[in-house]
Amino acid sequence: MRVVRAPHQSHPTNRISRGQLGHASCTALSASTPPSDQRAAVITALLANVAIAIAKLGAAAITGSSAMAAESLHSLADSVNEILLLVGARRSRRPADVRHPFGHARYRYVYAFLVSLTVFWVGGVLAVIEGVSHLAAREPLGDPRWAFAVLGLAALLEGWSLRTTIRAGRPAKGALTWWQLLRVTKAPEIIVVFLEDLGALAGIFIALSGVTLATLTGEGAWDAVAAIAIGLLLMAIGLLVNRETQSLLIGESAAPEVVEAIRQAIGSTDGVKAVVDLRTIHVGPDDLVVAAGIVVDPTTSATEIARAIVEAEARVRRVAPFRTVMYLEPRVRESDS
């Protein structure tokens, strides 16, 4: 048993590293998106992006549009995104072993981080190169009707994909705005797929604007500028996804409402006088590690302390909507010893 000097009031402040959003996030934290819905959203986005990439590539070959070529790279990059997310989700389901006692759930964070580093950035750079090369060549467009038709189809498919993503994220969203959800969610699939769907629709609008202006003015530079803008859009999304997934990969604490619920669950256990040095960390979207010191009466027997720990752990698992691993250390205050 360890002696602790710190009083109960001097526990460290628990905060969420990507922004504390207050009580409004409580609903989102008590209801996470089911894994089946997350998988459905990713697969829907994959199917849509593969079909769109093929159509855009064909339109780019027929019209010679650099904006359409950039958009085909965009959709191809998004398709690779979904494949990486599905691989990460599959690997994360591996059971715990001797080398990985907390399991492999962080694979979901690793692969989402790879998406931000490789696919978004590589796609963005290639799109910019495509636009710059066409800007220098000043090549005229072919029949723009193919581009308009494909962009219209792409808008419908991307809208369908975004609708599926929104429906999958609604249970976790609760009273939050979508931006707040992206800041507090522990599920990287929501971050990646939602941002890429929005980015895809924005890219379609940019490509449509570039092709339209190039057709009306007869100046192919507008098409090339649109391709460069699409590349810069991909880079911006890549930076945003990188920032959010990097924080998850390093390891975030549970949200403030969850931490407070855990503190109250432990503190209300018979035999526990106070909770000190409470720490939490997500090792996966649905996996939480909790460590804390519990202040007990120095006259309490070992059997009674063990019983209190078992009861406290059971109470925490009832209030925390995660697979939870707990470490509770009995302590006494110097004034009580």
Rank of each mutant, 00 (worst) to 15 (best):
Q20W: 09
A312N: 03
E139P: 01
E219G: 12
R307E: 15
D277K: 14
A60W: 05
L213G: 03
G169I: 06
Y327L: 15
L216T: 05
A41S: 10
S337K: 15
P140E: 02
S79H: 08
E260T: 10
F113K: 02
S116K: 11
V128M: 12
S72G: 01
T280L: 07
P140S: 02
D143F: 07
A51W: 10
R99E: 14
E334F: 13
D297C: 12
P12D: 02
R163K: 10
A70K: 00
F205L: 12
L195G: 01
R263A: 12
E334C: 13
S335E: 10
V132C: 07
H8N: 15
K273V: 08
G199T: 02
L117Y: 08
A229M: 14
I294A: 09
D78S: 00
T245C: 00
R167A: 13
D97V: 14
E313L: 05
L114H: 05
A154L: 06
D37C: 11
V289K: 15
A187S: 13
D286K: 11
V184G: 00
A320M: 07
T303V: 13
A154R: 02
E329A: 08
A314N: 10
T269D: 00
V283Q: 06
V4L: 14
E130N: 13
H8V: 02
E260R: 14
L216G: 03
S72M: 10
S253E: 05
I129Q: 13
S10L: 13
L86P: 07
L135P: 04
